[in-house]
């Protein structure tokens, strides 16, 4: 069984505009996550590859531009990623999918790779977590807590973590 202390949580993005959604959520997670979890922020997915180790579950948090219905936060288990959701412009087309495929071909990917997509852009899913009377900071905190709660469940029973998109918040 996977223990909490092996988890590596990585926020992908930049400080610019909506691209900072993954960073904001991971910063919030860092404030209350178990001490054994490591959190970090990365800008370019390709730089993730050189730092991967197959023995640590990897959790990636990224902004997703493609509208995702019903929930501001969705979970995907690699290798199932929606084609368009992470289609954010990246240098030399080295996007998240490319980086993870390359890491896979180098046998660097852990058995459990979860990608949490924070919906940005377009019409946000209207849920209790993101109702318009809440501040962005409140929303980030809520999404971070939803993510950690869901992640704990996945780590406790990784084999049962089904693939495919799973709405995490807004249920």
């Amino acid at each position: 069984m996977t223990t909490e202390r092996t988890v590596r949580v990585v926020g992908l993005g930049s400080p610019h505009g909506e691209d900072d959604a993954g960073w904001q959520v991971v910063r919030a997670i860092a404030a209350f996550a178990p001490q054994e979890w490591t959190t970090e922020l990365l800008r370019t997915p390709i730089d993730l590859v050189a730092t991967l180790s197959a023995d640590r579950p990897l959790v990636l948090v990224d902004a997703a531009a493609e509208p995702l219905p019903d929930s501001p936060l969705w979970r995907f288990r690699w290798p199932e990623l929606p084609t368009d959701a992470f289609d954010i412009v990246s240098t030399h087309a080295f996007d998240l999918r490319y980086a993870l495929e390359l890491a896979g071909s180098l046998q660097l990917l852990p058995e459990l790779v979860l990608v949490y997509a924070v919906h940005v852009g377009g019409t946000p899913a209207a849920t209790a977590e993101t109702s318009y009377d809440r501040t962005p900071s409140d929303i980030v905190q809520t999404i971070a807590r939803c993510l950690v709660r869901d992640l704990r469940r996945c780590l406790a029973e990784p084999a049962s973590t089904r693939s495919g998109p799973v709405p995490v918040a807004g249920q």
Partner: peptide
């Protein structure tokens, strides 16, 4: 490829 990634880092 592994060597290249480490060099870039």
């Amino acid at each position: 490829v592994e060597r290249g990634l480490r060099m870039k880092k």
